[in-house]
Simulated scan of single mutants.
Amino acid sequence: MIKIYNRSTKDYEIEKVAGEKYLQWNYSSPIGTSLLELFVKRKLFSKIYGSYCDTKLSSKKISSFINDLDLDMSISERSQGDFKSFNDFFVRKLKPNARPINTDSNVLVSPADGRLSVFTNIDLDNIIQVKGFTYSLKELIGDEKTANEYKNGTCMIVRLCPTDYHRLHFIDNGTCSDSREIDGSYYSVNPIALEKIPKLFCQNKREWSIFYSENFGDVILIEVGATCVGTIIQTYKPNIPVKKGDEKGYFKFGGSTTILFFKENTIKVDSDILEQSKLGFETKILMGERIGVKTNLVAN
């Protein structure tokens, strides 16, 4: 059971997890963990399943997925019958008014729908994955020089589960560097897996870039793949100016994670998010909503 904080209701709710019983078995039982290490975490498994999700046959899964997880299709640009495959449905775009973006240049917005955890004044060698498990930024991006620039900064982890809108957007006006790829495994990024696999983010396939933000400094943007996420698609053009809310890319099927690193004294995260993170709870957020402000302002 995964409990998350809902900012709208100011209360906790239980997350609907796709394949929860399978995840528990896969990451907790002797047979399940053996299968995980032998096959499930490997690229071949995710590639095979990802290929199936690109076929017309996979479209039969859409209806039950929507019903079982109670998805709101009224905000989708296309109706259920218009999708050619499950992946076509999974990376669906939303109607323009579905995710209003806070356009105040002083306001930091979420890059995606998901569940947010925040860590401030970070120790670059001991960034928290979950209680008891840490990793280093150098291991995560493979670039010690860049990593050292973020000492005492802020780390934001946005976990996307399969029920979420799976497109990523820019948090500000600016330009973004080329995306650098790092090969790795395909563990789930669900909390069930995070509590079992040390340095999981550093083991999974990932891509990272530097976003030269107009208002929040140079931000490291990292996309972490996961089980069945065989592909991370970048739709932006490197080094070309973008506007706040423009699309950066998307994940194909599966739960995924995007991680952002901000330099010291550049942002102030909203107090409710910080409080829940300190208590060990993720906060449910939507793309475009306020999650913080520039450090020269006082958050409400």
Rank of each mutant, 00 (worst) to 15 (best):
Leu116Ile: 06
Thr175Phe: 14
Tyr212Ile: 07
Val107His: 11
Pro191Phe: 12
Ile259Gln: 04
Ser110Asp: 01
Leu221Val: 14
Met156Tyr: 02
Tyr135Met: 05
Glu247Ile: 05
Arg180Cys: 07
Ala193Ile: 07
Tyr52Pro: 00
Met73Gln: 06
Glu13Leu: 15
Thr134Ile: 15
Phe253Gln: 02
Ile232Ser: 11
Glu20Arg: 12
Ser185Arg: 13
Ser179Asp: 07
Ala98Met: 11
Phe45Arg: 04
Ile259Ala: 04
Gly50Asn: 02
Arg206Glu: 05
Phe65Thr: 03
Ile232Gly: 09
Ser85Glu: 01
Gly114Thr: 00
Tyr52Asn: 03
Thr257Pro: 02
Ser277Lys: 06
Gly288Thr: 05
Pro30Ile: 12
Ser271Gly: 08
Ile222His: 03
Glu13Lys: 15
Ser179Gln: 00
Leu221Tyr: 13
Lys131His: 11
Gly81His: 07
Phe133Glu: 08
Arg206Trp: 11
Asp104Tyr: 12
Leu168Cys: 12
Leu23Lys: 10
Met73Leu: 14
Lys205Phe: 15
Asp164Asn: 15
Ile122Val: 09
Asn296Ser: 02
Asp218Cys: 06
Lys138Asp: 09
Glu214Ala: 13
Ile31Ala: 12
Glu149Ile: 14
Asp172Ala: 11
Thr55Leu: 12
Val189Pro: 03
Pro191Asp: 09
Ser58Lys: 03
Pro100Cys: 10
Gly32Asp: 06
Phe170Leu: 13
Ile171Glu: 04
Arg180Glu: 11
Lys268Met: 05
Arg115Met: 05
Leu140Asn: 04
Ile2Thr: 04
Val189Gly: 08
Asn152Glu: 06
Ile127His: 01
Ile222Ala: 06
Lys284Asn: 07
Leu274Lys: 11
Gln234Trp: 15
Asn126Ser: 03
Val219Trp: 08
Arg290Trp: 00
Ala193Asn: 03
Thr235Ala: 14
Arg42Glu: 13
Arg78Gln: 01
Tyr236Met: 10
Gly254Met: 05
Ser185Gly: 02
Lys43Tyr: 14
Ser105His: 10
Lys252Ser: 09
Asp172Trp: 14
Arg159Ser: 06
Ser185Tyr: 14
Phe90Gly: 02
Tyr52Leu: 07
Tyr212Phe: 13
Val189Thr: 01
Gln276Ala: 09
Asn173Gln: 03
Tyr165Asp: 00
Gln24Lys: 14
Leu279Lys: 15
Ser28Gly: 09
Ser29Cys: 01
Thr120Pro: 06
Leu260Asp: 10
Glu37Pro: 01
Ser46His: 07
Phe253Pro: 01
Phe86Ser: 05
Ser85Cys: 04
Gly81Arg: 07
Lys151Cys: 03
Ser59Met: 13
Thr163Tyr: 14
Asp104Thr: 04
Leu124Phe: 07
Leu194Tyr: 10
Lys268Arg: 15
Leu36Gly: 08
Arg167Phe: 14
Val40Pro: 00
Asp125Gln: 12
Leu260Arg: 00
Ser256His: 11
